[in-house]
Amino acid sequence: MMGARVIAIDGPAASGKTTVAERLARRLGYLFFDTGVMYRAVTWAVLDRGISPEDEAAVVDLARSLSVDVRPPGVEDGRMYDVLADGRDVTWAIRAADVDRHVSRVSAYPGVRQAMTRRQREIGLRGNVVMVGRDIGTVVLPEADLKLYLVATVEERARRRQRELEARGEPAEYDGILRAMAARDEYDSTRPLAPLKPARDAILLDTTEMTADEVVERALALVGR
């Protein structure tokens, strides 16, 4: 595993995977690539254009034509990267509650996943990258040198999401967040295409009682073993 150049980190929402991946990439000097933002950008564009998320044909057509780009942060407002959809900065817009409600459905469409996966693989296969998502180790980059799958109780993950929303000054009602997160877990883990699950050779890390820094140190040890 020494010198792992392609690292895949998967897991459910608010399991800590994005924070850990970003810090791990910084420590290693690797590219940090949150693949989930691509699906969020498509979902945002669907809603922005007044397309029904249930209209699969229209959603897929948009995904195939939409230019989604992820770049190093150009604004110092706490973001870890810039997300552009057809040249428009949607970095924070893709975190809206409406996007949360519909991203699972949009990302489950085969045509959408095909369009996004192709680009994700191109970036990942360059090497020196930490990729984070929900199917990196199973679908996007099954040949990754190191695969980590982060988990935490749904209650702890709901508390984390609540704190994240409150920090941005957005409404954050715990019970509602908990219900939405449990529903998304069920949907993501049972969908027929690329269901949320660890790769057979992934290493599971339960982050419920761990700080992000503790998880990063554990990951660094695995990279260098």
Results as ranks from 00 to 15, higher is better:
40 R>W: 06
60 V>K: 08
44 W>Y: 10
137 G>R: 07
87 G>C: 13
5 R>Q: 13
49 R>T: 13
120 Q>N: 01
89 D>S: 10
125 L>K: 15
56 E>M: 07
88 R>F: 12
96 A>C: 04
16 G>N: 02
176 G>E: 08
33 F>S: 13
134 R>P: 15
87 G>F: 04
48 D>W: 05
105 R>T: 03
225 R>V: 15
173 E>W: 09
110 P>G: 05
131 M>Q: 15
202 A>S: 15
72 P>G: 09
15 S>D: 04
27 R>P: 02
28 L>M: 05
164 E>D: 10
119 R>Q: 11
48 D>V: 01
196 L>R: 02
214 E>Y: 12
36 G>M: 00
211 T>E: 11
102 H>P: 02
219 A>V: 08
163 R>K: 05
98 D>Q: 07
172 A>Y: 07
63 A>V: 11
145 D>C: 03
135 D>P: 06
215 V>D: 05
123 I>C: 05
35 T>K: 00
205 L>M: 08
120 Q>M: 10
42 V>E: 08
90 V>H: 06
221 A>Q: 10
219 A>D: 07
109 Y>G: 08
51 I>N: 11
96 A>W: 09
41 A>G: 14
175 D>N: 10
84 L>P: 09
126 R>S: 11
27 R>W: 00
177 I>R: 04
47 L>C: 05
224 G>C: 09
140 V>L: 01
221 A>R: 14
73 P>F: 13
52 S>M: 13
220 L>I: 09
142 P>Y: 04
222 L>P: 04
204 L>M: 12
31 L>Q: 05
138 T>C: 01
29 G>N: 00
84 L>W: 09
177 I>A: 08
150 L>F: 11
218 R>T: 14
111 G>M: 01
81 Y>F: 07
20 V>W: 12
159 R>S: 07
173 E>N: 12
161 R>T: 11
205 L>K: 09
18 T>I: 09
154 V>W: 08
